[in-house]
Design a protein around this nucleic acid. Structure first.
Length: 298
DNA sequence: AAGTAGGTCAACCGCCAGAAG
DNA sequence: GCTTCTGGCGGTTGACCTACT
């Protein structure tokens, strides 16, 4: 059955988003919530494909997104999750609060795979290259550039397909710093449910610890993959992440759970402790991660 | 200073599963 | 039960950036 394109591309804007478009999208979602992506552009006054709007929101404009500054702990977690889950970027991103699958995927492709190669590890199999095919090691890319990663992501609007480069000031304008939020309501129990409004996301925004790294898990991403068990709804909150990593199990019914701010902060603390403990006890955690992977993939 | 090669990452594409009609 | 629609995912692209020559 042929599938109609998600939208007619005729007359629609493509390429990098302008600050104005971002603004329109954010304002619309603030007012009406996420969802209904197909009709959203028209209602919001955007000449964009709904899919493009969704992507822009999910990967860039969402208030709970943490951009750049991927910590060594996150590095390590990504590598180990990749070893267990493979290229299941959304699942991996789901274990890292505020990170998007796109960011993780890009980060993997541009940094981590090279890092692994330079360590003599095949990024696909996570096995020693020497065990697989010794000559391949020469593929390890030499680090030529010293990059200021502190602002590598969100301070640059590296417009794609832009006819002309924006000035530094102009680029800066597209940087949108919205308060981080923690979503505690499940998205889209049904397609017509627009209760997952921006407001509902924002009402719990204050629970993020001041370091700004706690928070929301992209709930939709937790939707079981087609090839995974229906019960594999992974942790809905970052706190659940901690629980998951520690126990290798998930709360049975998360869909309607709304943790209190205090609970979430506690759970986040637990998460941080886990990361710290991880440095001391990799073997135990690896076993826990394997349990996690099994539960995700079974 | 100019040219080049390679890195980065936002955005796009095609496909799929599940919901809705 | 079938068709269509919608949202989501992973892979890929390509404009832009920047270190190097």
């Amino acid at each position: 059955m042929g599938r109609a394109p998600c939208c007619s591309k005729v007359g629609l804007h493509r390429g990098p988003w302008t600050p104005r478009e971002d603004n329109l999208l954010v304002k619309y979602i603030q007012a009406h919530g996420e969802g209904q992506w197909r009709s959203l552009p028209k209602k919001a006054g955007l000449l964009r494909c709904g899919k493009s709007c969704r992507l822009r929101w999910m990967n860039y404009l969402r208030p709970d997104i943490k951009r750049g500054n991927i910590t060594p702990d996150e590095d390590d977690l990504i590598i180990r999750l990749h070893a267990l889950l493979g290229n299941r970027w959304s699942l991996i991103a789901g274990r890292l609060s505020g990170r998007t699958d796109n960011e993780i995927k890009n980060y993997w492709n541009t940094h981590l795979s090279k890092k692994l190669r330079s360590q003599g590890v095949d990024p696909n199999t996570h096995k020693k290259l020497s065990e697989l095919n010794p000559p391949v090691q020469k593929l390890a890319a030499p680090k030529k550039r010293i990059k200021n990663t502190a602002c590598s992501n969100h301070t640059k609007n590296k417009g794609k397909k832009q006819p002309k480069r924006e000035s530094g000031l102009e680029r800066e304008k597209t940087k949108i710093h919205l308060p981080k939020a923690v979503r505690v309501t499940s998205l889209s129990p049904s397609r017509n449910n627009s209760n997952t409004s921006f407001e509902s996301c924002m009402t719990t925004a204050s629970i993020s610890p001041s370091n700004g790294s706690a928070g929301y898990r992209p709930s939709d991403r937790d939707k079981p993959r087609p090839d995974s068990d229906p019960d594999d709804r992974v942790g809905f909150f970052i706190g659940c992440d901690a629980v998951d990593l520690v126990n290798g199990s998930f709360p049975k019914d998360q869909s309607n759970v709304a943790a209190s701010d205090e609970q979430l902060e506690d759970l986040y603390e637990e998460y941080l402790q886990l990361i710290e403990a991880d440095n001391h006890d990799r073997h135990d955690d690896h076993a826990q991660l394997e349990l996690l992977a099994e539960s995700l993939l079974s």
